[in-house]
């Protein structure tokens, strides 16, 4: 209980300071007062700057993330499993992956625009790149860390390769994969918002809304948009965290 109070102190201080500072500055183009932001937040269905409502824009943003992230999972999880399991495949892909991995996903934007053009596809592609590597790396790590004793146990019961993969490798790697997905989702969400701010990439979404608000100096909409991005990101992250601890309670996780 005491810890809960400790944790809530700083947010309250920040909110109060914000309000005091806003009153002191008295310039809504720099820092709007709390009330104008809250009034936007509590009317999430109002059309803003003719881009649609907060809800509409969140929906478009989420749709892109789900598509890009889903595609990332579909490709990186099986690839990670075979790369971790078959040394030859791991070695074959190793240099390419290591070379591409450190490139910030947003650096691909010009190329992606050239390849797939504007619209949904380009946004999905960027998110895909953002989600792909953390999931892949964690999956490989999970598969490689399988205790050889577990495989021996399976072999004494005459298990063949497929059984070992299904009954040992995948259950062992599952928590690693979920962790990769959580990290990948975080990066995907960041890539999305940045991508939506790029001119012409997709005329909707929270990033687009923020950018539109910027061009006409509507700081309260910018802040409302940022808060939405933060809340959605938090909810997604917590859902994965919940999965990690609940589904994998067999691990010795101490919170």
């Amino acid at each position: 209980m005491n810890r809960r109070i400790t944790k809530i102190v700083l947010p309250i201080v920040i909110i109060i300071s914000w309000e005091l500072l806003a009153i002191y500055i008295n310039n809504p183009w720099k820092l709007p007062q709390l009330g104008s932001v809250i009034s936007i937040l509590i009317h999430p269905t109002n059309n803003l700057l003719s881009t649609g409502s907060l809800i509409d824009n969140s929906y478009y943003s989420l749709l892109r993330v789900v598509l890009g992230f889903g595609l990332g999972c579909i490709i990186s999880i099986p690839l990670g499993i075979v790369m971790g399991w078959y040394k030859l495949l791991g070695d074959l892909f190793d240099y390419v992956i290591e070379l591409l991995r450190p490139i910030p996903p947003l650096a691909w934007i010009p190329l992606i625009l050239a390849w797939v053009g504007l619209g949904l596809r380009s946004a999905v592609f960027i998110i895909f790149i953002g989600a792909f590597f953390p999931i892949l790396i964690n999956t490989i790590e999970g598969v490689k860390s399988v205790n050889s004793a577990y495989i021996d146990v399976a072999k004494t019961f005459n298990a063949k390769g497929y059984d070992i993969l299904k009954k040992i490798v995948i259950p062992h790697s599952a928590p690693y994969i979920i962790t990769g997905m959580r990290i990948g989702m975080g990066i995907a969400w960041m890539c999305l918002v940045a991508a939506e701010m790029m001119p012409g990439i997709a005329p909707s979404g929270l990033g687009y809304l923020i950018w539109q608000a910027n061009t006409i100096g509507q700081v309260s909409i910018i802040i409302a948009g940022i808060i939405y991005i933060g809340i959605i990101g938090l909810v997604i992250d917590r859902s994965f965290k919940y999965l990690e601890t609940r589904q994998f309670s067999w691990r010795d996780v101490k919170n």
Partner: peptide, 29 residues
């Protein structure tokens, strides 16, 4: 031959319960 092997250490599958661990060989059969 069917083998029953009891290893020195840490051979139980941590993601399976007691029931699931004992069932492991039977499932594979």
């Amino acid at each position: 031959p069917k083998i029953g092997f009891v290893f020195q250490e840490h051979s139980l599958l941590p993601w399976r319960t007691v029931y699931g661990n004992i069932a492991f060989g039977l499932e594979l059969l």
